[in-house]
Amino acid sequence: MTGIEIDLDIYPDEASLVEALKSGDPEACACMIKQYAPRVYAIAIRMLNDPDDAEEVLQETFISACKNIKKFEERSALGTWLHRIATNAALMHLRKRKRREVSLDEPIETQGGDDVYREVQDWTFSPDDHAMNSEIRDILEKAIAELPETLRTVFVLREIEGYSTEETAQILGISVSAAKVRLHRARLRLRQLLSPYFT
């Protein structure tokens, strides 16, 4: 782990970390940030595709978490709770962004009509032969960033954050069938975006 050095072993388990957070212990806050900030930043940067906006979401997430920690009832893991705050903050940014720029070329969603099927290049690449090296990571991150926003948000929540399709739909305020259509399109689009690298 790089950057600021924090002893993460001060709190033997999550319950004691949360207890310390609720009592306003700054060391606990530093511990929480050190432990969870990379994942929170990852959600934000993948959803927003903008480092400045992602940093704002990161800060808003931890400010909100510290402010509301007493309301955290520990029915979920602390990380899950933070992810939810970060996701909501990122969505707020996306909504603000939408109000600023009304796009006329957003794709219209239909159940069928995906035209990405026909390009059928085989890949000689076998993921089993490769560790997740930084080159592959960069290619993937770039391809995800290139997805249109409506597809990217569904894809990030479902495939990277691991929410179910139903949860993803609920978070985004769309129907489950719309989430499925977007996920389907996103997966195929990503496959297409990656194909030049793997032939």
């Binding site: 990379p38 994942r39 099927y117 890949w123 993921p127 997740m132 990571r137 495939e159 990277i160």
Partner: peptide, 23 residues
Amino acid sequence: VVFDTLSKTLYLVHKLRESPPEL
């Protein structure tokens, strides 16, 4: 081919979960 490459794509994407980018 579509099925195989799609499966490989998702395999790699799921690997991203295990190691978030550095802050």
